[in-house]
Design a protein around this nucleic acid. Structure first.
Length: 596
DNA sequence: CCTACCATGAAAACTTAA
DNA sequence: TTAAGTTTTCATGGTAGG
């Protein structure tokens, strides 16, 4: 986001005449690797020996390798316990900042010794839909000065900073101010960029920002809350009163192949990206394709107006999985992971063939979810089918097929259907066998139902291999069980430094266990909560690693997914609103990396 | 009309700790 | 044996697109 704040006029002219920048097709014609190194990775041996009880010397070594001084490491370990890697890292990062900054600004960000839960305001953000209101400034102008200087040091214009402080209040955390400013910058761009014919709500968006200099984070969010599920109980007049809510829907392609899948010979080979979308860093965002109306257009607008790529994983594996991806990666010369997984139920589950009735024509599973069918249901089905010898009557067939599709059941015995086992799910999703083994069955289903389909994501990420032969630094948000990491690894892309942000301790352990089992040479850092990732920590990582090459993640879909009966509230829902943290963090990384 | 959908929460069942 | 914690079981619509 370089210098888009001054000289608006000239910039606007630029954008009006040429607002989109062609993404260079990288001329590595020699790519198309078929021999992918590091393929035989998974020994499948041994359980996850959770490696957390590492000896202190190992911990010290780990952090020495990251460039911290021994004194600092020892001190951090003393204060946080030897095994609390995250806390130690946080402490080290904090020390570094204290040393490097002229004043004592670190007060602005969090003290690592304070647990997340007792941090005011921020942690409850997801709980309510309300956003933190301005705090009355109880502090003196000294604080203001230091805040301003810190933000200016981060690359913002002083004027923007002052406006943001005025709007947000003095006590607002740096990260939030930064967020605010970024949103304002984007809003300005949006004004200029949205000259091509606009969806209706874009007009609304523009008209929202009456005052020219008014900053817009809240406007944006308000807009979002307007559109994303207006009361969801608007049954009565759903005949769209005039031109209400048209155009807000992102068109889902059919077939859902995005910019191309391996089996389709005709693919789009290049595309144009909005200028603001071009990296570094590369980023990759994922969520469910079938959301309530308006959600994808909102997501797209935040993510630099990139059009989503909607892809169904049924082109990559034996199960459907309709997802939208927004990314700024090149799209030519993609290649698929090897070995190519089985593409049909029959190939993926050979043992079911024996029991599979002729009248069940399914060749692909539906989306693998976090929950599976009940034993009661399989029993009902068994009884329904076994009452007839030979083929059951058509109405029975219809009922059984409907239930089998609904619950993704496969035939495992005479008249006997059952849900897919976690082991089988791992394979279909592209993970090594036993990847999630060791935690409860329910947790395995949950984790696997929430993750990337590795072959699909790997296909999209494959373009990175020739770009980063020496390996990449990854900021992995909402990592889950590490779908992104596994995909990159299977592509033969070395993982240098991976910062994984994942709230579930179970998932963290699974990822760490995989990391150890595959003998990764890089550093894996666990962070618990995306809301704890602030400008401060990002700045340190950028400094340590020389920047991130890829920011990747799929934010929670709980409030978007069709399966949710209770709280399908749209993007502002409790979990799904964490999308805005994805944007916030990505934008911070972007602005920091463009300073250099 | 048809189909499909990264879910939630209450309560039962089971396991662990004292 | 009891209690508390953990895991499993089960029923619960409605939106959106073809």
């Amino acid at each position: 986001m370089d210098g888009n704040t001054d000289s608006k006029d000239s910039l606007s002219i630029d954008w009006d005449t040429e607002d989109e920048l062609e993404v260079e097709s990288i001329p590595y014609s020699s790519s198309l690797g078929s021999a992918i190194p590091g393929q035989e990775v998974f020994s499948g041996s041994g359980e996850a020996s959770s490696s957390n009880g590492s000896s202190s010397s190992r911990v010290i070594h780990h952090f020495l390798g990251m460039g911290f001084s021994k004194d600092m490491i020892v001190r951090a370990m003393k204060e946080n316990g030897e095994n609390n890697i995250e806390a130690i890292l946080e402490a080290l990062l904090t020390y570094s900042v204290v040393e490097n900054l002229p004043q004592e600004e670190e007060r602005i960000s969090d003290d690592p010794s304070i647990s997340n839960s007792e941090r005011n305001g921020l942690d409850d953000l997801s709980g309510e839909d309300s956003f933190p209101e301005d705090e009355e400034s109880t502090n003196d102008s000294l604080e203001k000065d230091s805040t301003v200087s810190l933000l200016v040091e981060m690359g913002y214009e002083a004027e923007e900073v002052l406006t943001a402080i005025d709007r947000c209040g003095l006590g607002t955390p740096i990260a939030e101010l930064s967020d605010f400013i970024c949103a304002a910058q984007m809003a300005k761009e949006a004004d200029f960029l949205h000259h091509r014919e606009l969806p209706r709500e874009d007009v609304e968006f523009s008209s929202h920002r009456k005052p020219k200099n008014a900053l817009l984070l809240k406007d944006k969010r308000k807009l979002q809350s307007n559109e994303a599920w207006k009361g969801k109980r608007q049954r009565g007049n759903e005949k769209k009163p005039m031109d209400q809510e048209d155009d807000t829907v992102c068109h889902l392609p059919n077939p859902m192949i995005g910019f191309g899948v391996p089996s389709e010979p005709w693919r789009i080979l290049c595309r144009t990206l909005p200028k603001a979308a071009v990296g570094p860093p590369f980023f990759y965002y994922e969520n469910v394709a079938l959301t309530p109306k308006g959600v994808w257009s909102t997501i797209s607008r935040f993510l630099y107006d990139i059009e989503p790529e909607f892809v169904d994983s049924k082109f990559f594996c034996a199960a459907a999985r309709k997802r939208g991806y927004i990314h700024n990666l090149p799209i030519d010369n993609r290649f698929q992971l090897l070995p190519v997984p089985p593409l049909t139920i029959h190939e993926a589950f050979p043992s079911t063939k024996k029991w599979w009735p002729k009248w069940d024509k399914r060749s692909k599973l539906n989306c693998l979810l976090t929950c599976v069918g009940s034993a009661k249901l399989t029993e009902r089905i068994r009884k329904a089918v076994e009452n007839s010898d030979g083929e059951p009557p058509l109405d029975v067939q219809k009922y059984v097929l409907e239930q089998c599709r609904k619950w993704n059941l496969v035939w495992v015995g005479k008249n006997k259907v059952a849900p897919v086992e976690p082991d089988e799910m791992e394979i279909v999703m592209g993970f090594p066998r036993n990847h999630t083994r060791g935690v409860s069955r329910t947790e395995r289903y949950k984790a696997l139902g929430n993750t990337f389909q590795v072959d699909t994501v790997g296909y999209h990420l494959s373009v990175l291999r020739t770009l980063f032969p020496a390996g990449i630094n990854v900021l992995s948000l909402f990592s889950g069980i590490g779908g992104a990491e596994v995909a990159l690894h299977k592509l033969g892309i070395p993982l240098k430094n991976v910062v994984s942000v994942e709230k579930s301790e179970i998932c963290q352990t699974i990822l760490q266990s995989w990391w150890d089992q595959t003998n990764q040479k890089g550093n894996l850092i666990h962070i618990e909560d995306v809301q704890d990732v602030d400008a401060h920590s990002i700045a340190q990582w950028v400094k340590l690693f020389g920047g991130f090459d890829l920011v990747i993640g799929g934010s929670p879909c709980n409030n978007l997914a069709g399966g949710n009966r209770v709280s399908r509230d749209g993007l502002e829902g409790k979990q799904s609103s964490l999308f805005f943290d994805y944007f916030r963090i990505l934008d911070l990384v972007k602005s920091m990396m463009n300073q250099h």
